[in-house]
Simulated assay, not measured.
Amino acid sequence: MKFLKKIGKFLLGLAVVAAVIVAAVFYFTGDAVKVVQNQLKALRNSDVTAAYTYTSKDFRAATTEKQFETFVKANPILTTNKSASFPSREIFAGLNTTSTLDGELKAQDDSTTAITYQMIKEDGSWMILSMEVAQADTVTTDTPASSDLTETFSETGFAYTLKYPESWIPAIPQAGQALFSPSDEISAPTVNIRTYAYDDAGTLFTDLRDYISSSASYGEVKFTGEKTYTHTAKNGTQLKGKEVTITYDYDSIPMTERMIVIPGVVSGESYAWEYFASTQEYAGGKSAADAMLESWSI
């Protein structure tokens, strides 16, 4: 009986510690939630200009107010919801303090829509770095004109070509892998394309997801927005696979990644396309990465 009492006290102690941790996270993200709630209040009042002022410098550098307005119109729940709650919150303290807020918007009929905000501290204040509404596109810039992609990658041993900006330097670290980035810094926007000897892209997707989840290099990993992705090959074949957004810490740097896995045209080959950067720099390079993906000819 004494042993059971000790176990009970130990479990109670763990519960208290867990409660304290949760309370601390909610305390330190309280101001971030206030910023989001203020933005949503402005949107309910049809004041897009005011809502735009709650976004970060990187957000505004990558997304004009007009593009933001287009995104809002494409997601009417942002203006018609009657309330918003954010029960799931994470905070990352490193080179830049960032936070992830997962919540839901409640419609007038009480139905709910999931929404995720990435937040960043700027001059001591929380600002919106990115926002994603379930079953909608993340806010991004328009794809740059094809003239911005002045270089072409077409190397022996690769069953594809693609265009890329002059400032994004290509590298081939190993057979079947091509990297493109404007800098060799870990945090810099980077496109990484790898060829795998997999017949089934679904199996490759699962294996990569399991590897990332279990790898000590990635710290705490979170997967969001998993959905079907289709890429059209140059012969017209529809290459159907999956994509997912991943957030994690790498060398204490909060990172965001878009991973796409599709089958190849040739039997026995599948591809993993990754665009990743520090959470702070992700939005700034995404339009170039999207244009490169659009130009990817398999």
Rank of each mutant, 00 (worst) to 15 (best):
K2Q: 14
K2L: 14
K5H: 05
K5Y: 03
K5E: 09
K6I: 15
L11K: 01
L12A: 14
V16G: 04
V20I: 15
A24D: 07
G30Q: 14
D31M: 04
V33M: 02
K34L: 11
V35C: 05
V35F: 06
V35K: 03
N38S: 12
L40D: 04
A42E: 08
T55L: 08
T55V: 09
D58W: 01
V72N: 04
K73N: 08
K73R: 07
A74I: 01
P76G: 05
T79F: 03
T79W: 07
T80I: 07
S85L: 11
P87L: 12
S88R: 13
R89V: 01
E90A: 12
E90L: 10
A93H: 11
T98E: 08
T100V: 15
K106P: 03
I115V: 14
T116L: 12
Y117P: 09
Q118N: 13
Q118F: 06
E122I: 10
E122P: 05
D123L: 12
D123M: 12
G124S: 05
W126Y: 05
M127Q: 13
M127V: 12
M131W: 13
V133R: 08
A134E: 15
V139R: 05
T141W: 06
A145S: 15
S146R: 12
S146E: 15
S147Q: 10
D148A: 13
L149Q: 06
T150R: 13
E151W: 06
S154G: 00
T156V: 14
A159E: 14
T161A: 06
K163H: 13
W168L: 01
A171K: 04
I172M: 08
Q174D: 13
G176K: 07
A178K: 09
A178N: 05
P182I: 01
E185D: 14
I186W: 07
S187M: 09
P189K: 01
T190Y: 01
N192I: 08
I193K: 10
R194A: 09
Y198L: 08
D200R: 05
A201P: 01
G202V: 00
T203P: 03
F205L: 01
D207C: 02
L208M: 04
D210V: 06
Y211I: 10
S213A: 15
S213F: 00
S217Y: 02
G219T: 11
G219Y: 09
K222T: 14
K222V: 13
K222S: 12
K222A: 13
T224H: 07
T224W: 00
G225T: 08
E226D: 06
E226F: 02
K227H: 06
T232P: 08
T232F: 02
N235K: 04
G236K: 07
G236H: 10
T237A: 12
L239C: 13
G241T: 06
V244D: 03
V244H: 04
T245Y: 06
T245A: 05
Y248N: 12
Y248K: 03
Y248E: 01
D249L: 14
D251R: 12
D251T: 02
I253R: 10
R258P: 01
V266A: 09
S270F: 03
Y271C: 11
Y271T: 04
F276R: 11
E281C: 00
E281F: 04
Y282A: 04
Y282H: 04
A283I: 03
A283D: 06
G284I: 02
G285W: 00
K286D: 05
S287E: 03
L293R: 09
S295W: 15
